[in-house]
Design a protein around this nucleic acid. Structure first.
Lengths: 335, 335
DNA sequence: TTGTAAGCGTTATCAG
DNA sequence: CTGATAACGCTTACAA
């Protein structure tokens, strides 16, 4: 049996309320009594029982995090940040890996609610009605990562995907590339699908290029998918002079395919990635990519959430964090 | 205010104990009453409050997981398994990222204890006295991953590193390689340091080669470190015909260095990795590596832990899971 | 088989 | 400033 507040009270010769007051610093307690209590607490090595505490305060000091795939390095890095700053505020993380399945996302949404989490961080590839309904009815503090959720009246944080794709495409056009293929995350209903498409289009406009929707493919975050898309391109003899993938690993998939078919990168085809995850530097050729402040995205998201939990948050908005185009060896100028 | 057991009791016209009995299936309840209660529960959408429950049962349904680095793909995959099977048993995971620092490991060990976790999964690069003391005195169920902890009278699970290194080295000797450099995890005090060294030695004995301790380097799980080690080798003009790294990413670091210095892999030097993480297949040349049943390691560990929590575990032992040498393109036979 | 009531360890209200 | 005491929502003897 471990030591309770009662033991402390008894040994210090005060009431349990007094002990409670000193540990919570909630009401004035005379100095000598306070010191006496503190001393006893140390002697006994007393630690308040968080469960009992939660029962009365209705606060669990728990935050739920639903993500589609821990083994995605991008998400891992995000988690790193979330975990770290949460601990700073004395919150713990309950991790839910949904594998991107709507079913388990729904399951976790409810699970977390019954687990009494005080708020949730949500990361999903597709946003559905089920989600919306849940968020609307639960009124639980939620912040969305990597998706603009202002339509749901939720705060969210990400990089500006429209601008990032636009910049990358522009850079390639400037380098003299005539035709660029975009392998984006997914369809219009998927995360950032629309803004990536729009950014790509914008670059075409800016550089007076004709835009053809057929040059946009859906990679669905999958290396293999990107590989296959590339293979098709090769078979159809439609290999472009440059490829932009909205994920580093899809870029790697594309390069592997090209190289496996004897096409040199970047000599014959330029390929760019997105996110600047570990592999971008590890892989050869090193990837030209969009560096994202992944850690910061996670950190901002969790801070935002905690503010919301504490009722300090004003309005719900989307936060864009700055990205960076980093040029390495997988792209080249044709000029 | 959410619905409590009282609301259910009132609406079903029974006592709260009866309700408790039906939700826990703990004592016989007559069929008609049970049905009535179940119906009311559904109507009201009642969910037992886990906090209140924990307070009386002293069970938190929480398991603490301390790991050194979430963004390590190996650990991410492990986490995947842990999270998944834990949910199966209705346990939640509290994630603690120690960055391998002894200080935060210690911090988390205690934090988890006060958070009332029912057991812990522990993954560390170095095992120290602090850890031992904690485990001895707390008598909390703990299972260690990727480290033989039988000396601490703790269960643990991993692949047999001695054999794996030995097999890899043997394969290379068979291929006609004369000198092999081993870039292992770390020093003797580090995880698997000794067994990797021993396995390497054994292979030398088996093949009648002279063993020189100088051919063993400590990579400390770092890509850069491996890169530098390789660079030194090149500068000293001591490039071996084969390199075994005990981590895929260290292998990649080594290959990158070699290639950056104009040395071809596998034509001039063979390089092998360990773990068979994503990058092993993604990278070019694809890595020859030791495939580890990472998911299974995680799954076995968490199951073991839950058994221990339930008092079903017999003795504390180390479990070896089978590994596999998978040959890809980063090594070649000299014959 | 069912109900009553005593906790579980805290915080919070209200007197004093 | 300090102390009783009533919650918090649930499980579990103990009675009935």
């Amino acid at each position: 049996m471990s030591i309770t507040i009662k033991d402390v009270a008894r040994k210090a010769n005060v009431s349990i309320s007094t002990v409670s007051r000193v540990i919570n610093d909630s009401k004035p307690v005379s100095d000598d009594i306070k010191m006496r209590v503190v001393k006893v607490i140390e002697e006994l090595g007393y630690k308040p029982n968080p469960v009992a505490r939660s029962l009365v305060t209705k606060k669990s000091r728990l935050i739920g995090v639903i993500i589609p795939d821990i083994s995605d390095p991008y998400i891992a890095e995000l988690l790193n940040a979330i975990e770290e700053v949460a601990k700073t505020y004395d919150y713990d993380i309950i991790l839910c890996n949904s594998y991107g399945s709507l079913e388990s996302e729904e399951h976790y949404l409810h699970l977390l609610q019954t687990k009494q989490v005080e708020g949730m961080l949500f990361l999903t590839y597709k946003l559905r009605t089920v989600h919306k309904n849940f968020f609307e009815s639960s009124k639980m503090p939620v912040v969305m990562i990597n998706r603009d959720a202002s339509e749901l009246n939720l705060s969210s944080v990400s990089v500006n995907n429209h601008d990032a794709v636009c910049e990358m495409a522009s850079k390639l056009f400037e380098y003299g590339h005539k035709d660029i293929v975009l392998i984006r995350n997914g369809k219009d209903s998927d995360v950032f699908g629309p803004s990536q498409m729009a950014g790509f289009k914008k670059a075409h406009e800016d550089y007076g290029k004709e835009f053809d929707e057929k040059t946009v493919y859906n990679g669905g975050f999958k290396v293999d998918k990107a590989y296959k898309i590339c293979e098709e391109l090769i078979e159809k003899n439609e290999v472009p002079s440059a490829i932009i993938a909205t994920t580093d690993s899809m870029a790697v998939g594309a390069i592997n395919c090209l190289v496996d078919h004897g096409i040199k990168v970047p000599e014959e085809v330029s390929v760019a990635g997105f996110y600047d995850t570990n592999i971008a530097e590890l892989y050869r050729p090193q990837l030209t990519t969009i560096h994202q402040p992944i850690y910061d995205i996670g950190a901002v998201a969790i801070r935002l959430l905690i503010k919301q939990i504490n009722g300090e948050a004003k309005e719900r908005t989307h936060f864009f964090l700055p990205h960076d185009l980093v040029e390495r060896d997988s792209t080249r100028s044709l000029k």
